[in-house]
Structures are given as structure tokens and as C-alpha cells.
């Protein structure tokens, strides 16, 4: 792996709630190389989206920071394109116009009108949506709309592609189809991708590395797993590959043995004492004493949900 392309250092995130500050993330350290496909996996509410939003610049971390190609990330920008869970296409624009809005904005000065038109169609063809260029998002299926969302993000020529559960809202067949398409595209373009997912198979199939996050509050990176499977990968032949099975097993064991579902044993606390550990990237974060003794009320849980959302 080449030198780090994107780097998160000591990222902490706390939100102000009526019950005092809520610490969502603590000490996130993450280095991502160029062309690497990294998945973030963890239970609901563990702050995966918060990490992604910090990289996107949509949220500002309370402490620590994010550096992309030597520049600190403070604001959102097209070099960190985001693919949203439910496509986030403008319903009043056609598929073509949706991509055009992005291309117009990013390449207004560097491409001629003709070049832009070709670039838009090229990206739509990349996700096999060229035929629907003049349809509106309401006229196409959710899977197709998500393809367009990906095309729009790719059309920005981003340094990092950020995907927030891109296939979460799709049915299993469409999801598999889009995963394959994404693998092909990533292979061709060698783009750097950070993807949030709930789906263990998806993470193992697509990623070079899986970042497993502990449960919130004060979530951090629990374990990292490098997926050394050769590319191109085929979901059918991989199913019996012992390495694949082992990786899958490792992630499952992290999620369901080491980190059980958050609301059961991880109470929300107003301000848990920050554990001043320097390296937490390969250890499971033990629950603090304060967290153990505090009682969980549904109110706290709701506040946490809001803060995460």
C-alpha cells in the first residue's frame, strides 16, 4: 500500500444535547491509501455515519482532524463526493440533469459544453443508465436511482468516494447486481472508497480493509481486518473460499460476540470519562466503569439516536 492518502487523527465528536454533551466518537485514527476500498461496519448508532460526515466535511469534529492529500478537511467539497443511502437525486430534474448539475459545477471552467455532455453520458453509461437519461427519478426504480447517484458522484472525479450505506435500501438481487457493478468500476478507476455498511458479506466482498467499530457512545475503531482476496472477485466462487469464510467469520464474531446490540448492555451516559489510550485500533474498547453503572433510560437512547442522525 502506498503512503496515506486520507488520514483521520484523534477524531473526537460530541454533540450538545439537552442532557449535556453526548460523546459519539472517541479517538478515531485511520489511514487510507490511494485506491483502497475501506468499509466501516458496526451496529446501528455506533457513529459510522458521523465518521463519514466528518470526512465529507458535513460535520466538524470536536477534536482531531481529517487530512486529504495534505490539506485539512473543513468544508464539504466535490473532491469528496458522497453517495447517499436513498440516492438524493433532485426529483424535479431528469437523470441527465441531475448528473449535469454536478458536472456543471465541477467542470464549468475546465470542460467545453460538448466535453461536459460526453462526460455526463460516459458516467451514465458506466452505471448502465444511459438509456434512462431523460427520465425523472420518480419514473425509475430505487436501484436505478442509486446507480444514477453513483454516476453523479463519479462524475465529480472525486479523490475519495464516500458511500453511506449505498445499497441498504435495495432488495437483495438488485444489491448484488450493484455491488458487482461497483467492483468493476472501482477496479477500472482505481478510486479510493469509504463505504458504510451493515452487511457483512458486502463488506468482505468489496473491501480491501474492513474497519469494525465498537458500539457508541464514545465509539471508536475496535478491530481492523485486511481482506487479502485476489481481484476480480466473484461472489459465487468466493462462497467456498476458506479465506473468505474466515474473514466473514471474523467480522461476524466481532459484531455478534464482542459487540452485541448496543441498547442491551451499553447504557448511554451523559459524558463518559474519556479513556486516554493512545492506540485503540486493535483492541476492543472495554466499557468504562461509569458506563457500567449508569442506567439506560429510553430518553437517553432517543437523544443518542437524534445525535447520531
Amino acid at each position: 500500500m502506498s503512503k496515506s492518502h486520507l488520514e483521520l487523527t484523534g477524531v473526537n465528536m460530541s454533540f450538545d444535547t439537552p442532557d449535556g454533551p453526548f460523546v459519539a466518537l472517541e479517538n478515531i485514527d485511520l489511514k487510507i491509501a490511494e485506491g483502497e476500498f475501506v468499509s466501516l461496519i458496526g451496529h446501528s448508532g455506533c457513529g459510522k455515519s458521523t465518521v463519514l460526515n466528518i470526512v465529507a466535511g458535513l460535520l466538524q469534529s470536536t477534536r482531531g482532524g481529517c487530512v486529504l492529500d495534505g490539506h485539512e478537511v473543513n468544508t464539504p467539497g466535490p473532491e469528496r463526493a458522497v453517495v447517499f443511502q436513498n440516492h438524493a437525486l433532485m426529483p424535479w430534474l431528469t437523470v441527465y440533469e441531475n448528473v449535469q448539475l454536478a458536472v456543471q459545477q465541477v467542470f464549468r471552467k475546465t470542460m467545453s459544453r460538448k466535453e461536459r455532455r460526453e462526460w455526463i453520458m460516459h458516467n451514465l453509461e458506466l452505471v448502465n443508465m444511459g438509456h434512462a437519461a431523460n427520465k425523472r427519478p420518480g419514473e425509475i426504480s430505487g436501484g436505478m436511482a442509486q446507480r444514477v447517484g453513483i454516476a453523479r458522484a463519479l462524475a465529480m472525479k472525486p479523490s475519495v468516494l464516500l458511500m453511506d450505506e449505498p445499497f441498504g435500501a435495495l432488495d437483495a438481487l438488485t444489491r448484488a447486481h450493484l455491488q458487482d457493478a461497483l467492483m468493476d468500476i472501482q477496479q477500472d478507476l482505481n478510486s479510493t472508497v469509504i463505504m458504510i455498511t451493515h452487511d457483512v458479506d458486502e463488506a468482505v466482498l468489496l473491501s480491501d480493509r474492513i474497519i469494525m467499530m465498537t458500539n457508541g457512545p464514545a465509539a471508536t475503531i475496535g478491530e481492523e481486518l485486511v481482506i487479502d482476496l485476489p481481484r476480480p472477485r466473484n461472489r459465487v466462487t468466493l462462497a467456498n473460499n476458506p479465506d473468505y469464510v474466515r474473514c466473514r467469520q471474523a467480522v461476524l464474531s466481532f459484531l455478534y460476540e464482542k459487540q452485541t446490540f448496543p441498547s442491551k448492555d451499553k447504557p448511554a451516559t451523559g459524558a463518559p470519562s474519556p479513556a486516554p489510550s493512545a492506540t485503540v485500533s486493535d483492541t476492543d474498547q472495554p466499557p468504562t466503569k461509569a458506563a457500567d453503572t449508569a442506567a439506560t433510560s429510553s430518553h437517553d437512547a432517543q437523544a443518542r439516536e437524534r445525535a447520531i442522525a
Binding site: M90, L101, Q105
Partner: peptide, 27 residues
């Protein structure tokens, strides 16, 4: 306006007027 669309507008760094005319007003 759908917060996702607002985020799209932020990621694209749309100018104030483009944001109003292309995202907010149609919405």
C-alpha cells in the same frame, strides 16, 4: 427541503443563488 438534497448542494459547493434556484425553490 430534504436534508440529503441540502447535503448534495453543500458537497457540490453550489453558490447561494444556484442553491436557491436549483435546489430550494424547485423543492
Amino acid at each position: 427541503v430534504d436534508p440529503d438534497l441540502l447535503n448534495v448542494s453543500k458537497v457540490l459547493r453550489l453558490s447561494f443563488w444556484t442553491h436557491v434556484f436549483k435546489v430550494v425553490l424547485p423543492s
